[in-house]
C-alpha cells in the first residue's frame, strides 16, 4: 500500500513536470500586408507584401523535440549530411534530449538547425518558412510602430542588440523583445531561416545597377543597398547570403509562417 502511494505521488509529480515542460502553444499573429522598400531587391521600387500569419515565437527546443519524436528521419543520428551538416543540433545530448539542463532551455529557441530541417518542421505544422521579404517587413516594427524605418533610435537599439555576444543559455522566447505585431524576438534573440534565403544576390555587379540576368561577378554588394541606415538589415542579408541549406549555426533558429486562405 505504501509503495503504491509512493508510486502514485511519483507519477503525479512526473506528469506535472511533463505538463510544465510542455511547449507553448504555437500561436500566430496577423501581419497586415503593405509595401516597403527592401534593402536589396531587383529594382529600386517598393515591393508588396500580402497579409500573412507569422508565429509569435521562434520554435523552441521543446517544440522541436516534439517534432523529432514523430519524425525520426530528422533525428541527429538519422539525418543525411546533405540536409543538415555535422553540427546539427549541436549541444543535444542524444537524439531526443536537448541537454543536461533541459529546464533552462526548453523554451529557448532551437538553434543549430538547417534550412531543410526548419522547412520540414514548418511543413509538418501545415505551415512554411517566411520569405525574406515577409520576414524583413515584419521586422521593421518597433514596439509601437509597424514601420519604424525612420526611427533612428530603433536602429541604434537594434545595432546594440546585435553587438552583444550570445549568452550561454539562450533566454526563453517569451522574454525577448515584443514588437508592434505581437511578435517576440524578431530582433535581439537569434538569426532566423527564411524560405528564399538564397535570393540575395550580394555578389551581383551592383555598379551596373542591374543584377538582373547579368553575369554575376565582383563584390561591393553594399553599394546596392537601399537604406544604409538600416545596418542590421544589411547584416541579415549578408548573413543569409553566406548560408548553405545544410548549414547549422549556433545562433540561427526559425519560426513558421502561413499564407492567409484566399
Amino acid at each position: 500500500m505504501h509503495h503504491r502511494l509512493t508510486l502514485i505521488v511519483l507519477l503525479a509529480v512526473f506528469c506535472w513536470k511533463a505538463q510544465a515542460q510542455k511547449s507553448l502553444p504555437q500561436a500566430m499573429v496577423l501581419v497586415k500586408g503593405g509595401t516597403f522598400v527592401p534593402l536589396y531587391g531587383g529594382d529600386s521600387t517598393a515591393v508588396k507584401v500580402q497579409s500573412f500569419l507569422l508565429d509569435v515565437y521562434p520554435v523552441t527546443n521543446q517544440q522541436y523535440l516534439d517534432f523529432l519524436q514523430k519524425n525520426p528521419a530528422w533525428r541527429k543520428s538519422a539525418v543525411k549530411k546533405i540536409f543538415a551538416d555535422q553540427n546539427y543540433l549541436r549541444g543535444w545530448e542524444t537524439d531526443l534530449s536537448y541537454g543536461p539542463n533541459p529546464e533552462k532551455i526548453s523554451n529557448s529557441p532551437v538553434v543549430s538547425v538547417s534550412w531543410f530541417a526548419a522547412k520540414a518542421y514548418c511543413e509538418c505544422q501545415g505551415k512554411r518558412l517566411a520569405t525574406v521579404e515577409e520576414w524583413e517587413y515584419a521586422a521593421m516594427a518597433s514596439e509601437t510602430k509597424a514601420n519604424a524605418a525612420n526611427d533612428e533610435k530603433f536602429y541604434q537599439r537594434s545595432i546594440e542588440w546585435y553587438s552583444q555576444p550570445n549568452p550561454t543559455y539562450l533566454p526563453p522566447v517569451q522574454q525577448s523583445f515584443k514588437n508592434y505585431y505581437g511578435l517576440y524576438g524578431m530582433i535581439g534573440l537569434v538569426w532566423e531561416w527564411t524560405q528564399d534565403f538564397n535570393s540575395a544576390l550580394l555578389i551581383g555587379e551592383s555598379r551596373a545597377n542591374a543584377s538582373l540576368d547579368r553575369q554575376l561577378f565582383c563584390g561591393s554588394g553594399s553599394s546596392g543597398a537601399k537604406d544604409t541606415k538600416n545596418y542590421v538589415a544589411f547584416m541579415r542579408y549578408a548573413f543569409r547570403s553566406s548560408l548553405k541549406a545544410n548549414y547549422t549555426v549556433s545562433n540561427l533558429g526559425f519560426r513558421c509562417a502561413q499564407s492567409l486562405q484566399p
Binding site: G41, G42, D43, I82, W115, D196, F197, N198, S199, A200, L201, I203, L212, L216, S241, K244, A245
Partner: peptide
C-alpha cells in the same frame, strides 16, 4: 539550394 544557386524572381 543544393546546387548553391542564388536566384530571385522579380
Amino acid at each position: 539550394v543544393l546546387l548553391n544557386m542564388k536566384y530571385k524572381n522579380s
